[in-house]
Design a protein around this nucleic acid. Structure first.
Lengths: 344, 344
DNA sequence: TTGTACGCGTTATCAA
DNA sequence: TTGATAACGCGTACAA
């Protein structure tokens, strides 16, 4: 039984109702163009048989499927999973199904999925952050597309929605300055668009507060963070960095702006293990407001991304595009805010 | 432009190659039944035009889609997201696409998705934990189905894969006993199959170590845990529970088996805030080995679920079912293990 | 108000 | 080795 049978088709319903398939279709889709009796009859048979139109056949006929593809680099990442959740919810409300594709940041897999989605006649695409380096050579189908959190290289024409990372970097740094610390950036080795923007915000804040550019210190962590596995190498490296910062400190306490919460938490733990006072001697602001930031002690001050808004704007844009409308704004930045907790 | 155009169809390729659509199909799908020249010709045209078969049309013709549906209650839950990741990977390797559906534990939405998946002619279904109470009245399509982590009520015939929660409860409790504590269970108000099994394991361990059944203490937390939002009420309630336990203690230190990591971390933090020594005065074992368990301080001892194995068995079973084979084992329990860290 | 006929793009069967 | 033809299930002109 490798091949399935459609339980009940429109012809079955037609036969059982004593009408033609066309009439059944009219009753179910148009809502007009038939007598009251016929309508009742057909609906009755539909209810009895549990008939449901075959979406594949319908899609082939009308050349659209009522589904949108959602491509995500790593579903186990809390931020991405939240975006997925909200996007899915928005689209469901608009009667779209969502095909979620997890690429594992693998460009080949991403390509494969994009092709498959195209062949499945999805009506539109939401691309959450493509593969970092190779996204140049990703072949994107000719469809309504909205990119979230990262643009696809080469196509400035596609619409794009992301958090205002630069504002986030500014807010984090300003907080550290307000607390009387000398702010430093702790970030990952790999330079993504969003982390660059966060660092740009850091520089902006220095400038705005009259701190000389030469005082800017950006410390890059080499060790990989790893999705599922926590890297012990990361622990060690961050620990050494914290020790160095503390040793080199002047009279002003140290302020660390970590460009993500994982780094921030690592830094907090490293400081605590050395008996350094938080936030008196050592203040930290993270980024993302991930789950761990609230559950860790002391709770982490961090930049919060407005995921529901992000998803909402992305979906609204996509729906407009799918309807054939043009967009007023091709690029949207969603405001972020500081969640000030116990590390500043 | 609400309707799309297929860029290039099999007829286009046929015309450009000077053969019939049937021959193109043979070249692409069968690999035999044509001359060498024809094969080259067709493949050349395919490469030039970038033709890709329309999956919808093919699905309609062969009555299968090469996709499987994956229904998950909450994608932002780390355990579920890991299952999704691994299931998706396994299926991708077998050339299946995966449609991931996030139900938000909403029975109505689950039903809606099941119907839609059916109508999209998915070849099989993986159901990760259904809606708790209402799963009785979920209408499951007549398809190959594998349930993960929770059975659907009423249908003992469906195949089922989950972690050995009972073993987990046993291991956690045995650890607490071995450390010389009097073990207690801290769990949520709602009784799911898996948490019941975990508690059963707790009882087994008591019995096996000669601790009278009357000493079993199961404390249920009323406050909701909430997916995205952390509940302050939960904090307070757990804090009160910890205080009570500590006040009532006899000479033996307190051992808490929390049936999930969130509860465990709450308990740890509550104890720390009261200055209670961990693990000397207060030992804790969680369940799930979630992300927070490793990043929290002190790192949490917890029961680890073997998600890759879980996904692998589930997919292997589904693939067999989809091939029309029968399964030797309808119910599989995947072993768990204790990750002993700093809270025991 | 209703039915007939066609086509969406493919693959499978049959005959050449 | 190849091509014409039919069929998967549906929606929709068009005719009645």
């Amino acid at each position: 039984m490798s091949h399935r049978q459609q339980a009940v088709t429109i012809s079955d319903v037609a036969r059982l109702s004593g009408v033609s398939p066309a009439t059944v279709s009219r009753v179910l889709n148009d809502g007009i163009g038939f007598s009251e009796d016929t309508g009742r009859m057909v609906l009755d048979v539909v209810a009895r048989t549990g008939y449901q139109a075959n979406g594949i056949a319908r899609a082939l006929r009308v050349l659209k499927s009522g589904t949108v593809g959602l491509v995500v680099p790593d579903i186990t990442n809390y931020f991405f999973s939240q975006v997925v959740e909200h996007v899915e919810r928005e689209l469901f409300a608009e009667r779209y199904s969502t095909i979620i594709c997890n690429t594992g940041r693998d460009a080949e897999k991403e390509n494969s999925y994009l092709k498959k989605l195209d062949s499945k006649m999805v009506d539109g695409l939401i691309l959450i952050s493509g593969n970092p380096s190779t996204s140049q050579d990703v072949e994107v189908p000719n469809l309504p597309i909205v990119c979230v959190d990262r643009e696809i290289a080469g196509s400035e024409s596609t619409t794009f929605v992301s958090s205002d990372h630069e504002q986030g970097g500014y807010l984090a740094t300003a907080e550290l300055i307000a607390k009387g610390t000398r702010p430093v950036v702790l970030t990952t080795a790999y330079e993504s668009t969003s982390s660059s923007a966060r660092i740009a915000g850091y520089r902006n804040a220095l400038r705005a507060h009259g701190i000389p550019e030469s005082d800017a210190r950006i410390i890059r962590v080499q060790a990989a963070e790893g999705g599922t596995n926590v890297s012990a190498a990361l622990d060690d490296e961050v620990s050494a960095i914290v020790a160095n910062l503390y040793a080199e400190r002047t009279e002003a306490p140290i302020g660390v702006f970590a460009t993500n919460d994982t780094l921030a938490v690592n830094a907090v733990n490293a400081a605590l293990q050395r008996g350094i006072q938080i936030p008196q001697e050592f203040a930290i602001v993270g980024f993302d407001d991930s789950l761990i930031s609230r559950v860790v002690h002391p709770p982490l001050s961090t930049i919060h991304q407005d995921v529901p808004k992000l998803a909402q704007v992305a979906c609204a844009n996509l729906i407009k595009l799918m309807a054939g409308d043009d967009l007023l704004e091709k690029r949207t930045r969603i405001p972020v805010w500081l969640e000030s907790r116990a590390t500043t």
